[in-house]
Design a protein around this nucleic acid. Sequence first.
DNA 1: ATGGTTGATCGTCAA
Length: 262
Amino acid sequence: MAFTLATWNINSVRLRAPLVLRLLEEEAPDVLCLQECKSPVEKMPLEGFAALGYRHVVARGQRGYNGVAILSKTPIEEVAAHDYASLGHARHIAGRLENGVVVHNFYVPAGGDKPDREVNEKFGQKLDYLAAMRDAFHAERPERSILVGDLNVAPREDDVWSHKQLLRVVSHTPVEVNHFTDAQEAGGWVDVTRQDIPSGRLYSWWSYRSPDWQAADKGRRLDHVWASADIASAAHGSRVLRDVRGWEQPSDHVPVFASFDL
DNA sequence: ATGGTTGATCGTCAA
């Protein structure tokens, strides 16, 4: 069974429900993972998604911040919803599809402005969160699993518009990249997007604060699709839907897609 | 070094 999966930081699922519906109609992924829903689950506009065939949902929400959801055309069974680093935030949900594949959907803390945990508590929380992910994957190495989400780290030099200018900017600092890589390696996760698109600049986020995002193109690749090593060879066809950044009243993130022959 | 924009919520925090 082949299926296509997408991940998208929607930055308010209620405000941008029309954009979610447009993506589902135009691209029809089998599974869509959303982050930053900024809504309790009971206030997410799930009826509209169900009307398009996405009748199966696992989600965690909270008022105003965070919030993750997995929409699926086929049944999905919730298998976990971890509060890594005990932040009390709705940042993770995991479900198992009928083919046995477990989908982890993450929204890693952004980490605030200053990349120093001594003066910025949020940066410390981000590092702690990534360390907790590492520990969890070390304790139980994932198999037949896919991990997606807004991981809020752009690990490679060609994942940012200027490696040199971002070395001290949160999302691309060496300490974050090290924590990110440790979590990835602890799980034996393969970066599916870079397996399919091995070289060249690739971004999934452009700041609202940067005018003329398209021409300036000061983007970062913060949104990721990983697969456990046992199924990584089944992945193909990764795409980053850059044009979605130009939709009306857009999210600052765009969807990232991958397909799997399993 | 600073400010730039957006969203939730309703003065301010988070991103």
